[in-house]
Amino acid sequence: MKALVHITLKPGVLDPQGKAIANALTNLGFQGVNEVRQGKYIELDLPDSDRASAAASAKDMCERLLANTVIEDYRVEIVDQT
C-alpha cells in the first residue's frame, strides 16, 4: 500500500511563503488568485496489506514526526500499489 500524505498549515496560521507565491503569480499576470497556501506532500511505501492498517500507521507517523500539529494539519490518502 502507498500512503499519500498532504501536510498543510492550519487555517489562521500565517503563511508568508504562500503570500509571496500569490504575489509572484499576480506579477506574472494571473488575475484573481485569492490566496495561496503552501504545504508538503510525502509518499510512503508501506508494507501493510490492508488499507485500514496502512492508514493507521501513516496517521501515527504524521502525529509523531511528519506533521507538527501545533501549526499543521495532515490528510492521508491510501492507494493500491501500482
Partner: peptide, 15 residues
C-alpha cells in the same frame, strides 16, 4: 519539536 517547550519556530516573516 521534542515537546520540552511549547510553540513552534516558523519561517521568518520576511522569508
Amino acid at each position: 519539536e521534542s515537546g520540552l517547550l511549547p510553540g513552534v519556530l516558523m519561517r521568518n516573516r520576511d522569508l
